[in-house]
Write a protein that binds this DNA or RNA. Structure first.
Length: 726
DNA sequence: CATGAATTCGTTTTT
DNA sequence: CGAATTCATG
């Protein structure tokens, strides 16, 4: 077998990983070191050289996009489609597994998936039923509690709430949630893994079968795995010991949603024969960018250790720009982008603006709009998340299973058909009282004549609508069914009449929805027994692309989180200010601060040729002016790698120079002697600076001032001869 | 039951 | 400041 096509494009470390003998391998793949390439080539190596049959391979990723990319690249490399191999996301694969083993897992045959939004609504309904006040029990908090437990593999019975009133109540809600979820024949995202794990754990025969089959398990982005995902992997791999995990502890940025970097260390403990390969040669960035990123991330303790290097040149210095305010920051960035795209021949799509929080995008959107520069913002609503699409989906769900309370609640009055809160409350009460679905309760109340003429009529109308649609679509395919239901419910009319001006868009999306359903039907095996059920799962597991035309040449705007895995010739990392980045919510906890630093590392390593870091000296935040210090991350980059960009000689706007006085002593908690935070002051020895903080009162009062060129100092107010800067 | 006013509350997000 | 959600009123 000629293996040159597999090995020739690889460097030594990559080759070592790809050709490794059987056994568990941990590939620590630095940013831009060819991680996907290694995964793809490893699979090609196993199939073509080690003669591993494709059906004994399982490759798992986090996102559908990554899964698609991996499959495409494998098939390109092999020159033909690979049948039998399982490539997908954790959720996609476990879903497939549970669909095959619904009976063993004790699930209804046509169980459906509860997505995040449905889950949230269900929790709200439960809180209401339990008469818990939402201000004391915020649904978001309850939701994250439940998901956290599940991500740790804990069912309600496993949570030890002894003696803790708060926990006890949370667990009670969790239990009630589980009951409602089970009644509806639903699994949430975490359940997919939890149930798959439990089934493998409890059924030796099934476990044996899958271990025999999947002799090779490969995982991408291993540092992002949570407890249950890792437990599932371990169980599946078992004594085969053929786990090929690729990850980078320095790019772990999802700790807040349950990811455990520690899994990387655990892997080496749990698989004692495992070997580590480091990929440190970077093919993306200039030497300067890598040096800066290395220096930054070196501040984090407890790393596995990795130093990126490049065979290419140093490149340009990192450019740092101190903007007067957030508007100036946006103006500056847009001006540079214009310059690069007009004078230097870069495409606009080769410029990315990366920010910490989504709220920051607006300023850049405005500035780009003013400058008439096309742009694309990532992370908006995706196709299956649009209200009109979710409405149409809810109708399909109701056809599929009328006892789906979530779907019922969503469309009972969409379009408005005169069923209000009071009728709905009666329904809910009845449903809860007799432990039946809302659908069943509706029939019962109609039969009992318990509703009054108006309520009865509207409810009968709705029940008939669903029943008739069920009957009428029995022999129709997916797209025809969707069309029928949209017609029958008069959804298009409803959106057109809504005066939010989005009617046209919405109706167009409905059309696209029908098309999507049609296309799905074609892609799915013809022998799919339950195309509607499969389509609904697909909609839940894959929310689709976030609109926008990926081919247009537009500046890319996104959060640092969504930038992971991408690269751009010109990167603008904006808002590098204390409080914003690192975010104030993470400032207290060292672990979270380290994650912020990794986020910064991820951002910097997205840049190929040029990296800009910007911060504003004054920023309007929540309607108030703030005067943030430059981010500590700026100080953690060696100064010799950076070059300050001066403004174009525009004079500082008066607003930034002389902020509106705030009440003395309020913000810093101390006595400021008439100065206020953010005020510019002069000191006979240290020169000009900005008031940052204060503490103490009277003779003890101290004030912190950040002096230009000197740094920040705490001064005793009584002795410091401070004067307002003129 | 729909509409505008009042109020609240501000990370990161995939499946 | 602005969105998103709740509240009071035709």
């Amino acid at each position: 077998m000629d293996v040159s096509h597999i090995l020739d494009p690889l460097n030594d470390a990559q080759r070592e990983a790809v050709t490794a003998a059987m056994g568990t391998r941990l590939v620590l793949a630095g940013a831009g070191s060819g991680k996907t390439r290694v995964l793809v080539h490893r699979i090609a190596w196993l199939i073509q050289v080690e003669n591993v049959p494709p059906w004994s391979l399982l490759a798992v990723t986090f996102t559908n996009k990554a899964a698609r990319e991996m499959r495409t690249r494998i098939e390109e490399m092999l020159g033909h489609p690979v049948g039998g191999m399982w490539v997908g996301t954790f959720h996609g694969l476990t879903h497939r597994f549970l669909r095959a083993h619904w009976q063993d897992a004790g699930l209804p045959q046509h169980f459906q998936i509860l997505d995040g939004d449905d889950q949230f609504r269900l929790i709200k309904r439960i809180l209401k039923a339990l008469e818990l006040d939402e201000s004391n029990w915020p649904p978001r908090q309850v939701q994250s509690f439940i998901n956290k437990q599940k991500d740790e593999g804990l069912r309600p019975d496993h949570v030890d709430a002894a003696g803790d009133r708060y926990l006890t109540q949370m667990v009670a809600v969790y239990r009630e949630y589980e009951a409602a979820r089970t009644r509806g024949g639903l699994l949430d995202f975490a359940d997919l893994l939890l149930c798959a794990h439990e089934l493998l754990r409890e059924r030796a025969d099934i476990l044996h079968h899958y271990r025999e089959r999947f002799r090779h398990v490969l995982v991408d982005e291993f540092q992002d795995t949570n407890a249950i995902q890792y437990a599932w992997l371990r169980l599946l791999v078992g004594p085969n010991d053929n786990l090929f995990a690729v990850g980078d502890d320095d790019q772990s940025i999802y700790g807040w949603r349950g990811a455990r970097v520690e899994n990387i260390q655990s892997l080496q403990r749990h698989f004692p024969g495992s070997q580590v390969v480091r990929l440190e040669q970077n093919y993306r960035s200039t030497g300067t960018i890598l040096k800066a990123a290395n220096a930054l991330i070196a501040r984090n303790p407890g790393r596995l250790g990795k130093n990126l290097w490049t065979a290419d040149g140093e490149g340009e210095p990192i450019r740092r720009y101190a903007a007067f305010n957030e508007v100036d920051e946006a103006r500056f960035v847009v001006e540079r982008i214009r310059k690069y795209s007009t004078e230097e021949g870069y495409r606009r799509a080769e410029c990315a603006i990366l920010y910490r929080t989504t709220a920051q995008s607006r300023l850049f959107e405005e500035a780009l709009m003013n400058a008439q520069v096309p742009f694309r913002v990532y992370g908006g609503l995706r196709f299956f998340e649009r209200a009109e699409v979710r409405d149409a989906l809810a109708y399909l769900r109701l056809l599929n299973n009328p006892d789906d309370d979530g779907a019922f609640e969503r469309v009972i009055n969409t379009p408005t058909r005169g069923i209000g809160e009071r009728t709905l409350d009666l329904l809910r009460e009845r449903a809860r009282g007799s432990a039946v679905s809302l659908w069943q309760a509706a029939q019962d109340l109609i039969a009992a004549g318990a509703l009054g003429p108006r309520g009865t009529a509207t409810l009968v109308h709705f029940v008939d609508l669903i029943r008739n649609a069920q009957a009428a679509t029995r022999d129709l395919d997916l797209a025809e069914t969707a069309t029928h239901v949209i017609e029958a419910a008069a959804l298009a009319d409803f959106y057109m009449k809504a005066k939010d001006g989005k009617g046209e868009d919405r109706v167009e999306n409905l059309g696209q929805f029908v098309e999507t359903a049609g296309r799905f039907r074609q892609e799915v095996e013809d022998d799919e027994a339950d195309p509607l059920g499969a389509f609904l799962s697909h909609a839940a597991l894959e929310a689709g692309e976030a609109q926008a035309d990926p081919f247009s040449d537009a500046v890319q705007l996104m959060t640092l989180h969504s930038a992971k895995g991408l690269e751009f010739p010109n990167v603008f990392l904006v808002g590098l200010e204390e409080g914003l980045f690192p975010h104030s919510m993470s400032a207290q906890d060292p672990a979270r601060l380290e994650e912020e630093r990794r986020l910064c590392y991820v951002g910097m390593t997205r840049a190929m040729h040029r990296l800009y870091v910007t911060h504003a000296e004054s920023r309007r935040l929540y309607g108030k002016e703030s005067y943030p210090q430059p981010s500590r991350f700026l100080r953690e980059v060696p100064p010799e790698l950076m070059e300050e960009v001066r403004g174009r000689g525009v004079s500082r706007p008066a607003a930034a120079r002389a902020p509106v006085p705030a009440a003395a002593g309020v913000m810093g908690g101390g006595d400021t002697g008439g100065f206020h935070l953010g005020q510019r002051v002069t000191h006979p020895k240290f020169g000009e600076g900005v008031v940052l903080n204060s503490e103490g009162r009277g003779a003890q009062a101290r004030i912190q001032v950040n002096f230009q060129g000197v740094g920040s100092k705490w001064l005793v107010l009584a002795y410091a001869r401070l004067e307002p800067a003129g």
